[in-house]
């Protein structure tokens, strides 16, 4: 097992496993966000549970942070290694002739997503940590919906949010099928599987965008 991680394929598999984990997390996150559109109460309950349950706070959250960091660090490591392997560039290269824009620019869509995550951490996560563990404010199980609505009052926040999720969609349009291919799952070559990938890659970011727009226009 140790040796496999030192190989190029081992790194590729590690990248895919962290991607699966993050894709699962995205689905969960979206489900909770969508609750805010249908029922503020349900959204508050779910958020309060996620924010106070020790299992989620002290086990799932660190695993998630590790997963995010791992995926990014590994992504950069692979990019650097690949730049070394392609030391001399072609004078003329027609990359679009044989591969999609998304697949050729994962590092850039990835960097855009990273920038957004930093912002997102600042906006939501740091606030939570401060509220709960630093300022020790009194727990309030109904504050989440109001806080969410307040964030989406700002048109600039909403615009940044929309752009970030477009980058996420671009990243997933290649990433979803790439992760399955890396795991050696042959079904990925089937048309139905590819369609599922597209539905996920466009549907999930679109869901996040709809939530943001809903709250902005619903003020």
């Amino acid at each position: 097992m140790n040796t496999i991680l030192k190989t190029s394929i081992g790194r590729k598999i590690a990248m895919a496993l962290s991607a699966f984990f993050l894709m699962f997390f995205l689905l969960m996150h979206l489900t909770i966000n969508l609750l805010s559109v249908f029922s503020p109460d349900a959204f508050n309950t779910a958020s309060h549970f996620m924010g106070t349950n020790p299992l989620i706070q002290f086990i799932m959250q660190p695993i998630l942070i590790f997963g995010v960091l791992f995926h990014f660090v590994m992504g950069f490591v692979l990019e650097l290694k690949n730049r070394k392997a392609t030391a001399v560039k072609y004078v003329k290269n027609n990359g679009a002739a044989n591969a999609s824009w998304m697949s050729r620019n994962m590092i850039y869509s990835g960097i855009a997503i990273l920038a957004f995550i930093v912002l997102h951490f600042k906006q939501f996560w740091m606030h939570e940590i401060n509220y709960k563990y630093i300022a020790h404010e009194t727990p309030n199980a109904t504050r989440y919906y109001e806080e969410l609505v307040k964030v989406f009052e700002n048109p600039i926040t909403v615009a940044v949010y929309v752009i970030a999720f477009i980058f996420l969609a671009l990243h997933l349009l290649h990433g979803f099928k790439s992760a399955f291919q890396s795991m050696g799952i042959p079904a990925i070559r089937k048309k139905t599987f590819e369609t599922c990938g597209k539905i996920y890659a466009i549907g999930v970011p679109a869901g996040f965008i709809i939530v943001a727009l809903y709250h902005y226009f619903n003020q």
Binding site: R11, A85, T86, G184, P186, R189
Partner: peptide, 27 residues
């Protein structure tokens, strides 16, 4: 050689039509 990121360009340009399923099998 570099690390494969599954762009699929190789399979398009391969003169013998070797498909990506062979990479999945290698994995």
């Amino acid at each position: 050689f570099g690390n494969c990121t599954n762009t699929g360009a190789c399979e398009v340009e391969c003169p013998k039509g070797i498909s990506l399923t062979n990479i999945a099998r290698l994995n």
